[in-house]
Write a protein that binds this DNA or RNA. Structure first.
Length: 269
DNA sequence: ATGCTAACCTGCGCGC
DNA sequence: TGCGCGCAGGTTAGCA
């Protein structure tokens, strides 16, 4: 599924059902996700959930014995269901909770992951991540310095998790449209002023998406199982060949690093 | 060092 | 109606 706003929305939706509950049992029906679900995940059984944390697109579930780390991949979702609710196709993992509810992981493409890190061991996937986009650590100065002499296109640059986390394909496309920058522009060629604009826009776009309940995604499902809002307010993503909503030019599509890039040839230079 | 490619999977929509 | 193709929200190992 998910871009950062969807993960944040999932985290907020799950919190009231998970925090302070005990994990009574864990049922793994399919352990072949992006990584094999480790046996050690069973160490969570009997543990109370202390808090949920989101870092990048990872959702961390903290307990006294260690931390579970979820990643939802391309098509994963987590939701709360009643304990009698039968599992459907692609419902790979259940956590039975002390409040009688089930935390259920669904993921058709199985690009997601569930890992366990015992207390005081390093959480490897988090070690080399760049700043969170919605914090003060993500600045234009930092982006500017990192990008000097880079020929890499700005789009793949901002999607690099060591530069800044949580900017996926949809929001990369939208942010570059709003900043008036062509996706293929070499990152190193952009002025501090233009990068300042880009940083501002990335923060605004992600914050707005979270505020709207997290989703611009067709098949997004909230923690309560309600479908997400249908794609609203996307200026370019998924609109190749259609008119620019600002100037009515026909939107172009190219590919960078095998990801589609839609842009307006007039508004983005 | 940098940056691109392929790969991991299933489902869906399109053209024929 | 069915089949094959290409594409889809992410990440990363490996290669040039």
């Amino acid at each position: 599924m998910p871009e950062l706003p969807e993960v944040e929305t999932t985290k907020r939706g799950l919190e009231p059902y998970l925090v302070q509950q005990r994990i009574e049992s864990i049922c793994v029906r399919q352990n072949k996700l992006r990584f094999l679900v480790p046996e050690e995940i069973q160490q969570l059984v009997g543990q109370p959930i202390l808090r949920l944390v989101r870092r990048a697109k990872y959702l961390l579930v903290e307990t006294p014995t260690g931390t579970a780390l979820w990643h939802l991949g391309m098509s994963g979702s987590l939701r709360i269901v009643e304990h009698h609710c039968a599992a459907n196709k692609h419902d790979h993992i259940d956590w039975l909770l002390s409040n009688g509810k089930i935390l259920r992981y669904h993921d058709p493409r199985r690009f997601g992951a569930l890992l366990f890190f015992p207390l005081n061991t390093p959480i490897q996937p988090l070690l080399h991540l760049g700043p969170e986009p919605l914090t003060a650590e993500f600045t234009a100065e930092q982006l500017w310095q990192r990008s000097r002499h880079k020929k890499q296109p700005i789009k793949t640059f901002i999607m690099d998790n060591s530069v800044v986390v949580g900017v996926g394909n949809i929001y990369a496309n939208e942010s570059l449209f709003l900043a008036g920058i062509r996706p293929q522009t070499a990152a190193g060629k952009l002025s501090l002023a233009r990068l300042t604009n880009l940083v501002t826009v990335i923060k605004e776009v992600l914050a707005a998406a979270i505020q709207q309940g997290g989703t611009t995604l067709r098949d997004f499902v909230s923690a309560e199982g309600k479908p997400g809002y249908f794609a609203q307010q996307l200026f370019v993503y998924g609109r190749a060949g259609q008119p620019c909503l600002r100037c009515h030019s026909t939107l172009c599509e190219i590919r960078l690093a095998q990801r589609s890039c839609v842009y307006c040839p007039k508004c983005q230079r």
